[in-house]
Amino acid sequence: MVRKALITGVTGQDGSYLAEFLLAQGYEVYGLVRRSSSSSLSRINHCAEKLHIVSGDLLDQFSLMDAISETQPDEIYNLASQSYVPTSWTQPALTAEYTAIGVSRLLEAIRRCKPDARFYQASSSEVFGQPDESPQTELTAFRPRNPYGVAKAYAHWMTVNYRNQYDLYAGCGITYTHESPRRGKEFVFRKITRGAVLIKLGMLSELKLGNLDARRDWCHAQDAVKAMWLMMQQDQPDDFIIASGETHSVRELVQCAFEHVGLNWQDYVSIDPAFYRPNEPVELVGAMDKIKTKIGWQPEYSFEQLVQSMVDHDLKELSQSQ
């Protein structure tokens, strides 16, 4: 029997890769999209003919219940949220509605309409905020430092509580920063890979960045979505950190990107105080022990491969636009 999956946020980076992955596994894939959505469908255009688009909105309880009742999915992946941290400061209430309360609506819809469905909630390393230990484990205390992290913490604990209270198969993947050629241009990783290419092509003369010593745990979005799927294949639901288990500095990222296009980054990069954030006293880096041991997952892409794949993509895309 063909398994069915419903993905919220299917038009985003993770949603598009997950849809591809599930289609390759033989799933019937449904993507929840807001009818009034202005978001681009470009990330899923290449597989749109194989996808079933369903109308629904995390702000509307009944649309979620209708979507689940109509599709009767075996697995539900919630990848939709307002996910840009700076926007969470300018639109904190909207961030809470989608990223926090929207998950409550979705969990309640599952409980009422398809309680045997398996549910994946996209949690985030932003729930840790400024942690008291490094690396962080699944038991590290949550100390979010922005509205996005607060909303994700709420969604995480609601998922855990629905799992315990109603015996739902529901698990949270605490994903650290993950990137790909489909990453939005507003995020620093893509800003750097794209900036290097723009300079190489003579379309930009300078790249302004903030703290080059800031370190992050980065992995590829394709690796992350495979971890999400593996989580849903386990006998019992659980929560897992999805990360690379290592950190790299923004400086390393810049050097790798510019070297890949044959440039010396020091000739083109300048520091702008407007983008500067101080070093965190404790690094955000995920402990890999649990996910490696319990489900046998670890990233396939190295940091260098991730950077180079994004630079190559940007080079191809921008060269064609010249």
Rank of each mutant, 00 (worst) to 15 (best):
L22I: 07
I192C: 03
A153F: 13
Y154L: 11
Y30M: 02
I53M: 14
V2K: 15
S38N: 14
L32D: 04
K191V: 14
S270D: 12
K316V: 13
Q130F: 14
G9M: 00
T247I: 10
R194M: 14
Y98E: 03
R183P: 09
I174T: 07
W218E: 00
Q130W: 05
E206G: 07
A196E: 01
L212Q: 05
F62R: 11
A48G: 09
K226I: 10
H313P: 05
L22A: 09
L106S: 06
C256H: 13
I295N: 01
G262K: 13
E49V: 11
Y162R: 06
I76N: 00
K226P: 02
E283A: 05
A257Y: 15
R190V: 01
K114D: 00
F240S: 03
T8W: 06
Q322L: 13
Q236G: 02
D272P: 08
M65V: 06
G286A: 09
K152I: 02
L106K: 07
H248F: 12
L253C: 08
W297V: 02
F258P: 04
F119Q: 03
W229K: 12
D272N: 15
I110F: 07
D167S: 14
V261K: 13
R163W: 13
T90W: 10
A227P: 00
F142R: 12
E246L: 08
L207D: 07
L318T: 01
M232T: 00
K191W: 15
V282N: 11
S88F: 15
G245I: 01
P135Y: 01
V285A: 02
D314S: 10
V261S: 04
Q82M: 12
N161R: 13
G202R: 06
Y154H: 08
N164Q: 14
K114Q: 12
L23G: 05
R105I: 06
A80K: 01
V307F: 15
V160I: 07
H220T: 06
A5C: 11
Q13S: 06
Q320S: 14
R182S: 10
E300V: 15
P281F: 08
E252S: 15
D235N: 13
S55C: 11
N264L: 06
V282L: 03
I68Q: 02
K316D: 11
V269M: 03
H52A: 10
H260P: 07
Y166D: 07
I199E: 04
F21R: 12
M228S: 03
Y17E: 04
Y27K: 09
G129E: 05
Q165S: 10
K208G: 02
C113I: 05
T159N: 08
S63I: 05
A93E: 10
R277L: 12
Q222M: 11
I192Q: 04
Y276S: 04
D132I: 15
G129V: 00
R105L: 08
Y169G: 00
L284V: 04
L64D: 08
T193M: 06
L139P: 01
S249D: 06
M228Q: 05
S42V: 14
